[in-house]
């Protein structure tokens, strides 16, 4: 009896101070994130201003129907998932490559210069990016048609109706905007690696590539896993700006640019139906949630230490 009480007390002694340290953050998340989740109810309500959020009538799953009863449901879901997969795989590979190369250059001036430039695109809004892409691709005065193809005597391409090119254009645009920025995380990861590992490897005659393969990449694994699980949670979301503004809302491109977010936007543009847009967000979140739990469970099975929770 006595020992049990003591044990309990000692866990509390261990737990309470740690909990206190975390408390400010917890309180903030409660206020900023958890309280507003009450708004998720709106997905199941027919919103009426007179009645407000809490007294509006329930309408079951009515608000969700528009996402599934359309012929486009398959196309938009497929596009959203495939692009996200491409972004996760290529984005991670590119960011790691940049991080490794930048770290290789160490403290040199050019490393700083390169890094400054590479994170710049991330600071431009999608609207601006869409203008840049338009400047490069537009049929009449765009850079490619005007400055490259014309001098070569090749007839200009109407890029905004050329469906086949857009998966590549969108992927490149996304990499351009975000790869440099995401590489920062991996640079931090690399910097955390014990340098003596490399030194002894070098003494053993390991080449640079071998060092990267056997030391850097394995040490980055936890970061990669974490970042991937987090991206998996956003699997059903898409960057509205990338898929709506960058293709200039071009109808001909819908088969390869329509995602869940753009469909919802185009569908609800003219009547601001709060219930239906909440429903779309709820659907995207819940699928993301399921996918994350699944991904986490798999990681847990393979490699317990790297699971998120």
């Amino acid at each position: 009896m006595q020992t049990k009480v003591k044990e309990k007390k000692s866990t509390r002694q261990k737990t309470a101070p740690l909990f206190l340290i975390a408390l400010p953050g917890i309180v903030y998340l409660l206020i900023n994130n958890y309280l507003p989740m009450a708004g998720l109810f709106l997905a199941f309500k027919r919103y009426n201003f007179m009645k407000g959020i809490f007294s509006s009538d329930w309408c079951g799953f009515d608000n969700f129907k528009f996402l599934f009863t359309t012929k486009d449901a398959w196309i938009m879901t497929r596009n959203t998932i495939l692009y996200n997969l491409a972004f996760i795989i290529l984005g991670t590979a590119m960011s790691i490559l940049i991080a490794i190369l930048l770290c290789e250059l160490g403290q040199k001036l050019r490393a700083k210069l390169f890094q400054s430039v590479l994170i710049l695109p991330n600071m431009l809004s999608w609207v601006i990016v869409s203008f840049v892409v338009f400047a490069i691709l537009n049929a009449d005065s765009g850079f490619i048609n005007n400055a490259i193809l014309k001098p070569l005597g090749i007839e200009g391409v109407s890029w905004y109706t050329f469906t086949g090119a857009w998966p590549i254009i969108l992927i490149i645009t996304n990499l351009w905007k975000s790869a440099g920025y995401s590489s920062i995380v991996y640079m931090a990861g690399i910097s955390g690696i014990d340098k003596s590992l490399y030194e002894s490897a070098a003494l053993d005659g390991a080449t640079k590539l071998q060092q990267i393969k056997n030391i850097t990449l394995p040490m980055l694994k936890p970061t990669v896993i974490t970042m991937t699980i987090m991206s998996v949670g956003r699997m059903f979301y898409s960057d509205f700006g990338l898929f709506y503004q960058v293709p200039q809302n071009s109808g001909a491109l819908f088969p390869v640019t329509q995602t869940i977010d753009t469909y919802v936007y185009r569908g609800l543009m003219e009547n601001n139906n709060i219930g239906m847009s909440s429903a779309a967000g709820f659907y995207q979140s819940i699928i993301g949630f399921i996918l994350v739990l699944a991904a986490n469970a798999i990681v847990r099975k393979l490699d317990r230490d790297n699971a998120m929770f």
Binding site: F66, T69, V264
Partner: peptide, 8 residues
């Protein structure tokens, strides 16, 4: 619901 589809 039809409106969201035809708008698209």
């Amino acid at each position: 619901i039809q409106y969201t589809a035809v708008n698209n």
